[in-house]
C-alpha cells in the first residue's frame, strides 16, 4: 500500500466542509494518487481521466467516511472501482497474442538510465515501457488487478480479495494465470522463459 501519511485531523476538517482543508489534502496526495492510478491503468490518457473521476468522488463522498484513520483504504477502493468502471466503459479488455506483439530484443531492455540518455535510447526505452504496459493492460481485468495489487502495491492476498470482492482462492488463481500470460507475452524480455509448467 502506498503510504499516504495523511493526518486524520485534515480528513475531519474536510468532512466538516472546509474547502481549504480539502485543497491541502489534495495537494499532499495528488502525485502519489496519479502514480497509483497509472500503475493500474498503464495508459496516460486513461490515468488522467480516472484521476479526475477519483478526485470528484473523493470530494463528494469524503463526508460519508466514518473512520478517518482508514482514509487510505477507502481511497484505494475508490481508485480500484473507478479503474474497473473506466475499463468496462471503454471496453478495453483485449488479449494480445504473441504474434501481435512488437519485436524487442533483450539488449534494448533498459530500466534506469544510469548514463546520460541519448534520444534514440530514450525512445527505445519508451517503446519497451509501452510494450510492457500494453501487455499488462491486455490481461483480463481480474487477473490484471490481482497481479498489480499484489506484485506492485504489495497487498496481501486477503487485502486483494477484499478490494476485488472475490475469494482468496480466486485471487491466487488470477495472480498465477496473469503471471503465466505475462511470462509468455513478455518472453523476449524474460530470458529463461519456459512454457512447460
Amino acid at each position: 500500500m502506498h503510504p499516504l501519511n495523511i493526518d486524520p485531523e485534515v480528513i475531519k476538517k474536510c468532512q466538516s466542509g472546509d474547502e481549504s482543508a480539502f485543497e491541502v489534502l489534495y495537494n499532499s496526495l495528488k502525485e502519489n494518487l496519479f502514480r497509483w492510478i497509472f500503475s493500474l491503468m498503464r495508459n496516460y490518457d486513461d490515468a488522467e481521466e480516472v484521476f479526475q473521476e477519483c478526485i470528484i468522488r473523493l470530494f463528494r463522498h469524503i463526508g460519508s467516511l466514518r473512520e478517518p484513520e482508514r482514509f487510505a483504504h477507502w481511497l484505494y477502493r475508490i481508485v480500484v472501482n473507478q479503474c474497473n468502471t473506466h475499463r468496462v466503459r471503454m471496453g478495453r479488455n483485449v488479449h494480445i497474442t504473441l504474434k501481435e506483439s512488437i519485436e524487442v530484443k533483450p539488449e534494448d531492455f533498459v530500466f534506469k538510465s544510469s548514463v546520460r540518455e541519448n534520444p534514440r535510447r530514450s525512445l527505445m526505452r519508451k517503446e519497451l515501457m509501452d510494450f510492457i504496459n500494453k501487455n499488462i493492460a491486455a490481461l483480463p481485468p481480474k487477473q490484471r488487478m490481482a497481479v498489480l495489487l499484489f506484485d506492485v502495491d504489495g497487498l496481501s492476498i486477503k487485502e486483494v480479495a477484499e478490494y476485488l470482492g472475490c475469494s482468496e482462492g480466486a485471487v491466487k488463481f488470477n495472480i498465477h494465470e496473469g503471471r503465466k500470460k505475462l511470462r509468455i507475452a513478455l518472453s523476449p524480455l524474460v530470458k529463461n522463459i519456459s512454457l512447460k509448467e
Binding site: 497509472f38 500503475s39 510492457i132 506484485d151
Partner: peptide
C-alpha cells in the same frame, strides 16, 4: 524478472 518488469513499468 517478471515482477521487476511489472514494477518498473508501473511508474509514469
Amino acid at each position: 524478472t517478471l515482477r521487476g518488469l511489472i514494477r518498473a513499468s508501473s511508474q509514469p
